[in-house]
Simulated assay, not measured.
Amino acid sequence: MGEVKLLGGLGYSPFVNRVEIALKLKGVEYESIAEDVKNKSPLLLQHNPIHKKIPVLIHDGKGIAESVIIVEYIDQVWEGPPILPKDPYQRAMARFWAKFIDEKCISATWKACWSTGEEQEKSKEEAMEALKFLEDEIKGKKFFGGDNIGFVDIAANFIGYWVPIISEVKGVHLITEENFPNLWRWMNDYCNDNFLKEILPSKDALFERFKSI
């Protein structure tokens, strides 16, 4: 299927990790190239000249940017366990929730942990409101994709793995067993999944990384 390269970071990016998970699910062999985001390589600028950000997947010399788009591309190109549902309606809904997570959840949860004062309180409210929708969506299911990890689970990677670590560092606990029992259960299932354990970055490394910010 041609040469595959992944332009990524140093193990700290949930967006790069989305792509890593998709590639591993499909059993795709690839070359991982670490990018210095402060000193961007000509290869990165060539294949993502608009946003100049990681991740970028290079397949047969052609670059694809934006993690959610890359994951969908991987699902379409390579055989293996499906990432997106086959049913058109379910596929549309998976895209909807992935977009919702990117636009409504990630920024609000990040700001809720890292901002202060009135901005933090406002961000907390926004984050809690958005998370309530995910709480309802995951109810009665092991993963957003059903019995197996799917497109929405990969999109929610930041919430499932990064947010608990950042919350511990900053002492801002947005998702608890009391206020979001369904999400809490999903987060535990996600983090303890044997397949994902091999791909998710070290908790200790992330903890030290965020402590230094």
Rank of each mutant, 00 (worst) to 15 (best):
L131D: 08
L131I: 00
E119Q: 14
A130T: 00
E129A: 15
T116I: 04
T116H: 09
F143T: 05
A112Q: 11
A112D: 06
I159V: 11
F144P: 01
E121G: 05
F133T: 13
E126L: 15
A155M: 02
K122H: 11
D136P: 02
S123Q: 03
D153C: 07
E125G: 07
K142I: 09
L131K: 04
I154T: 04
E129K: 14
D136F: 14
N157Y: 12
E129D: 09
E121H: 08
F158G: 00
C113L: 09
F133L: 15
D153S: 06
I159W: 05
K139N: 15
E125V: 03
E118I: 05
F151E: 08
I138H: 13
S123L: 01
G145M: 06
S123G: 00
A130M: 04
E137A: 14
L134N: 14
A127I: 04
A112K: 06
G146L: 03
E137N: 04
K132S: 11
S123M: 06
L134R: 07
K141V: 01
A130Q: 05
G150Y: 06
N157L: 15
D147F: 04
D136E: 15
C113R: 01
E135K: 07
N148L: 13
K124G: 14
G145S: 11
F151W: 10
I138E: 10
Q120Y: 08
E135H: 03
I138K: 09
E129Y: 07
G145R: 06
N157P: 04
Q120S: 09
K141N: 10
L134S: 14
F133K: 13
N157W: 02
A127L: 12
E126W: 10
E126R: 13
E121F: 07
A112S: 11
T116Q: 14
K141Q: 11
N157K: 08
K124A: 10
D147H: 04
E135V: 02
F144Q: 03
D147K: 09
L134A: 13
E129F: 11
K139D: 15
I149Y: 12
E135W: 06
A130F: 02
F151K: 09
V152I: 08
I159Q: 04
E125R: 02
V152N: 09
I159R: 08
K141E: 12
D153W: 02
A155E: 03
C113N: 10
C113I: 01
G146C: 07
I154L: 09
G145Q: 03
G150R: 04
A156P: 01
F158L: 00
D147E: 14
D136R: 08
Q120M: 12
